[in-house]
Amino acid sequence: MKYLSIILTVAAIAFSARAGGLNIVTTTSDLGSIAAAVAGDHAKVESICTGKEDPHHLQARPKYIMMARNADLWIRTGMELEIGWEMPVIDGSRNSNIRPGQPGHLDASTNIEKLDIPDAGTISRALGDVHAQGNPHYLTDPLNARLVARDIAERLAQLDPANAEAYRANAAAFQQRIDERIPEWTRAMAAFENQSIVTYHKSWIYFAKRFGMPIAIELEPKPGVPPSPAHLNQVVQTVQQQKIGVILQEPWYSKKPAQLVAGKTGARIVVAPIATGGDPAATDYFSLIDLIIQRLGGK
């Protein structure tokens, strides 16, 4: 009888935690935006990154442990983007439902067509901060966001079968919005077709591939290594040779290297957020892509 009452109490606590629907915690804010669109009113979505920080370099803070503690679903970008802080947060939360491999843990990169997968024979840390599984900045391609929405809906349907149809319908609506916007975005990006640009970090390759905009060179000599004077000279030469007009970078990087290159070449510096929340105007996934394209277009 005593055990029964303990079990009932625990069940009541567990149930009350879920009474307001599922708790979803995403590592990055762009995942959070997609998850919120898919979950609708059936879940509360919180994101660890606000879009203002470089997700490579967060620290596993107690606040994140508090967010993870009551999560029913943890969604990560994967491909080692969060490797510096994810497991201390999950371990610290003592929430066994969201450990890798559990239904409450979704790696959003699972079904993505990955780019920049280094050759297993030559991969080395001498290449900089390369990720063995490929470049993790795949959400800059709206068609990848479309795929991730479906994966989130399927996982939510598994965790909360009662609302499965709602999740699938929300994901379908999200996908339809993407499909509607793609032609417009493609038109706006037509000016960049086969017009190379420079980026700070190798974080825009999925976006560039989607819209047919080649990236000639990065300001970082190697991923994760800050620009050096010798490398910036090489960038200046590349910009001059290929008549490149735009240097694209995230808000958290220093503008000095780009200003140096721009000063010598006349290229325009474009600072655009790469995740939702990285700019007051990037309130959700659609306004994020809108803003990136507007900024590239010089608006």
């Binding site: 203002k52 920080e53 470089d54 490579h56 370099h57 967060l58 620290q59 803070r61 994760g224 800050p226 808000p251 958290w252 990087y253 220093s254």
Partner: peptide, 11 residues
């Protein structure tokens, strides 16, 4: 106490 700046490379 830690302040984690948004800037890369620990700056």
């Amino acid at each position: 106490y830690k302040y984690n700046s948004s800037r890369p490379y620990g700056q």
